[in-house]
Computed example of a mutant assay.
Amino acid sequence: MSASFPIQPLAGLRVLDLSRVLAGPMCAMSLADLGADVTKVEHPSRGDDTRDWGVRVGSRNTSYFNSANRNKRS
């Protein structure tokens, strides 16, 4: 879980993130930041579309993907 908020009001809440592209992932990220256990479900063969947007960080993900999907399980 995130260390961003000392009080995690959504701890114990489980969220299934089926969203794509900006608004949904950002909302789910906010829930995760507040302590929810967020599981992100991606397309089975190609993964999330945003993995290919922008500059890659490391070998797999772009900085956009990493920033919009922090604190989630995939």
Rank of each mutant, 00 (worst) to 15 (best):
S2L: 11
S2E: 14
S4D: 15
F5Y: 15
P6I: 13
P6C: 09
P6T: 14
I7R: 09
I7K: 06
I7N: 13
Q8V: 01
Q8F: 10
P9D: 11
A11W: 00
A11D: 03
L13W: 02
V15Q: 10
V15A: 14
V15N: 11
L16V: 04
D17P: 00
D17S: 08
S19P: 00
S19D: 03
S19E: 06
R20Y: 03
V21Y: 07
G24L: 09
P25Y: 00
M26Y: 13
A28T: 15
A28D: 07
M29A: 10
M29W: 08
S30D: 13
S30I: 12
A32F: 06
D33R: 07
D33W: 09
D33Q: 15
A36V: 04
A36D: 05
D37G: 05
D37L: 09
D37R: 07
K40E: 02
K40Q: 03
V41F: 12
V41I: 15
E42G: 01
E42I: 00
P44V: 03
S45H: 11
R46F: 07
R46V: 04
R46L: 11
R46Y: 09
R46H: 09
R46T: 05
G47H: 05
D49C: 05
R51I: 03
R51M: 08
R51E: 04
D52C: 13
D52K: 12
W53S: 01
W53I: 06
W53T: 03
W53C: 02
G54F: 12
G54V: 15
G54R: 08
V55E: 15
V55I: 06
V55P: 02
R56E: 06
R56W: 04
G58V: 00
S59I: 01
S59M: 01
R60Y: 11
R60P: 03
R60F: 10
N61Y: 13
T62A: 11
T62C: 10
T62E: 11
T62Q: 12
T62F: 12
S63L: 10
Y64L: 14
F65H: 08
F65T: 01
N66A: 11
N66M: 14
N66F: 05
N66L: 14
S67Q: 11
S67F: 11
S67I: 09
A68L: 14
A68P: 00
A68Q: 11
N69V: 00
N71D: 09
K72P: 01
K72R: 08
R73F: 05
R73L: 10
S74L: 04
S74F: 06
S74V: 10
